[in-house]
């Protein structure tokens, strides 16, 4: 239970970053993002994405345009704004920092473990 909880907390923290990351490659519409996120098991229920997208848009990090669809109603295609890109770079560096820290911690821990077992 605690593990699941911790996992979901981690995912939640990651979600915003991942969405921005996805959109930095190419503008896409919500269902595409959902598919990608589901593959990565970052979201459980699809509805979670929409409040997030709206919030990012309202914060000026994202913008969208309507595109006609061959099937069904027109779709909203989201893309990063310049402000969003700046924001993403910030997050990128933060992530890199985090991952190095985690990696560092892990290797250090491993070394310690190894030393303790060898001893």
């Amino acid at each position: 239970m605690n593990v699941d909880n911790a996992k979901s907390q981690m995912r939640k923290g990651m979600l915003e970053y991942c969405v921005l990351l996805l959109l930095s490659k190419e503008p896409s519409y919500a269902s595409d993002i959902i598919i990608r996120l589901k593959e990565a098991k970052l979201i459980v229920v699809e509805g979670t994405l929409y409040p997030l997208l709206t919030r990012l848009k309202n914060d000026g990090l994202l913008s969208y345009e309507w595109r006609e669809s061959t099937q069904g109603p027109p779709r909203k295609y989201y893309a990063l704004t310049s402000e969003g890109e700046l924001f993403l770079t910030g997050l990128d560096s933060a992530w890199n920092e985090l991952s190095t820290t985690v990696k560092h911690l892990k290797t250090k821990g491993n070394e310690e473990n190894e030393t303790s077992t060898t001893n």
């Binding site: 909880n5 979901s8 939640k12 979600l15 979201i43 459980v44 229920v45 699809e46 509805g47 979670t48 994405l49 929409y50 409040p51 997030l52 919030r55």
Partner: peptide, 21 residues
């Protein structure tokens, strides 16, 4: 409904600091 999520499940992702599930 299970796929999209119930209303009370949806907002959690956007609320900055939430407690436990």
């Amino acid at each position: 409904i299970a796929r999209i999520g119930k209303p009370e499940e949806l907002c959690n992702a956007t609320d900055e600091e939430e407690g436990e599930n």
